[in-house]
């Protein structure tokens, strides 16, 4: 069973099928807090992906050494070390971003995505697959943060990644860059994603019923 999962799917499932933000509903706090602009979202997602990839790698490497009673504590220490690295690099190299993201860089420690992947995947799989899974989930998180950040930035300040995309005649919706806008955007996006999935499922179900009827009729024809 395990062999059947292709390496590509190991990566891709995190981007779409189990997208951390929209499907697993993990890591909500940074998703909502830092998406004032697309660039902040990207920075946050990259920082999270870095921690996710390296902690998954280490956890996967030592997965047979850690006794299962203390595994959560061990994971947290590993994750916290990488978060410290990211935090210090951000403070030294990207001061503005570090200020904009505020406490949310150190808060990557308690981001459920990382502990969730460690517990559900990295602790049970080989390092290579763990890295692919981490990259996939990171990419999915990046996608979600970029979309939410992009929408909020375009509607709230007329720009995308700092470039003006809407004409000056458009009155920016200030609410989009305020906390309320984050909740509304994310809620609506999640609702539309669900609606799309429901419609797709219904179509699949309808085509299945159609096929079933066709086969029944064929059977009847052969019986006659």
């Amino acid at each position: 069973m395990k062999k059947k999962v292709t390496l590509w799917y190991e990566f891709f499932k995190g981007v779409w099928d189990i997208n951390p933000a929209f499907k697993q509903i993990l890591g909500m706090c940074p998703t909502l807090a830092v998406t004032v602009s697309a660039i902040n979202g990207i920075a946050m997602a990259l920082a999270t992906t870095f921690v996710l990839v390296f902690s998954s790698l280490i956890i996967s490497l030592v997965r047979k050494l850690i006794p299962s009673q203390v595994r959560i504590a061990a994971y947290i220490v590993i994750i916290a070390s990488f978060v410290t690295i990211v935090d210090m690099v951000m403070k030294a190299q990207f001061q503005e971003l570090s200020k904009a993201l505020g406490p949310f860089i150190p808060l990557i420690v308690v981001n459920c995505i990382i502990l969730g992947r460690a517990e559900a995947f990295a602790s049970k799989n080989t390092p290579f697959r763990a890295i692919l899974d981490a990259l996939g989930n990171g990419a999915g998180f990046l996608l979600a943060l970029f979309v939410i950040g992009g929408i909020r930035e375009i509607l709230g300040s007329r720009t995308l990644l700092g470039f003006q995309v809407l004409p000056n005649s458009y009155d920016p919706m200030i609410v989009m860059i305020l906390p309320a806008g984050a909740f509304l955007t994310f809620g609506l996006l999640m609702g539309f994603a669900n609606a799309y999935a429901l419609r797709k499922n219904r179509k699949v179900a309808e085509t299945n019923i159609f096929k079933y009827k066709l086969e029944r009729e064929k059977l009847k024809a052969t019986e006659v």
Partner: peptide, 21 residues
């Protein structure tokens, strides 16, 4: 149906956040 659970909760939270502003 698509908005049941988390999505409607987030939208309500958005309106609450507006009120708290």
């Amino acid at each position: 149906k698509a908005f049941q659970g988390a999505p409607i909760t987030l939208i309500v939270a958005g309106i609450l956040a507006l009120a708290f502003m």
